[in-house]
Design a protein around this nucleic acid. Structure first.
Length: 200
DNA sequence: AGCACGATGCTCT
DNA sequence: GAGCATCGTGCTT
């Protein structure tokens, strides 16, 4: 059963292996209701962070004040602050008690283009911190339910991306993370070979 | 087009 | 006190 385009993804979508969720989130629509305006973008890049064994994952430190959300219910947002100025948005995955999350790294703007452009001062939205800035996502979205519109942040069914349009490679920015975790091919992105019929 | 660097503050040891 | 799941600028090819 494939849900209709525009329907909000359910907890069952997220309560699965993180790698599958990361792959299948490509093409879905990240939606933000901000001041009564709908901002949306097609998810075009993701990364998987999987469990305490994964030394690239924040949960390598176990359950802490920051990582507790990753141990919680699938389909919630894990939002954290880094580099002194940037917010990152993740979707929590896997069964409760197992820490997993998908980092949303890039979107292609779809709705609310004027606001998005203003939020980014005309620059692009291809980057994890650019994406949150474009949609006005900060600390107050941490642990909100992405399977409901009540918090003004959710993910909708879009058009799935075919395998030939997806490039898989190592995750970005894990400079001091030891192997094999540093090089795990857990990054998924939509490449330029999308068919012309594909549209949002 | 690609690399080096500084900004800036929270989290965990 | 160290280390960031980054970005934009400014400089070099």
């Amino acid at each position: 059963m494939i849900p209709p385009v525009g329907s909000i993804l359910s907890p069952e979508f997220y309560n699965r292996p993180t790698l599958r969720v990361a792959r299948e989130l490509l093409g879905m629509r990240l939606v933000r209701a901000l001041d009564g305006i709908r901002l949306a973008g097609i998810i075009t890049e993701t990364e998987a962070y999987v469990g305490e064994q994964d030394l690239g994952c924040h949960a390598k430190a176990g359950r802490t004040g920051r990582t507790a959300v990753m141990y919680g219910t699938a389909g919630h947002a894990y939002v954290y602050f880094t580099y002194g100025m940037h917010w990152m948005l993740n979707a929590v995955t896997e069964a409760e008690g197992f820490p997993g999350a998908v980092l949303l790294r890039a979107i292609q703007p779809l709705d609310g283009l004027e606001v998005i452009s203003a939020n980014r001062q005309g620059r692009d939205t291809n980057g994890p911190a650019k994406l949150t800035q474009a949609l006005g996502i900060q600390k107050d979205s941490n642990n909100c339910n992405l399977c409901s519109s009540s918090a003004g942040l959710w993910i909708e069914m879009g058009y799935p991306i075919p395998d030939e349009s997806v490039t898989i490679g190592p995750r970005v920015g894990l400079y001091t993370v030891p192997e094999p975790w540093k090089s795990k091919p857990w990054r998924f992105r939509v490449n330029s070979s999308l068919p012309k019929s594909w549209s949002g």
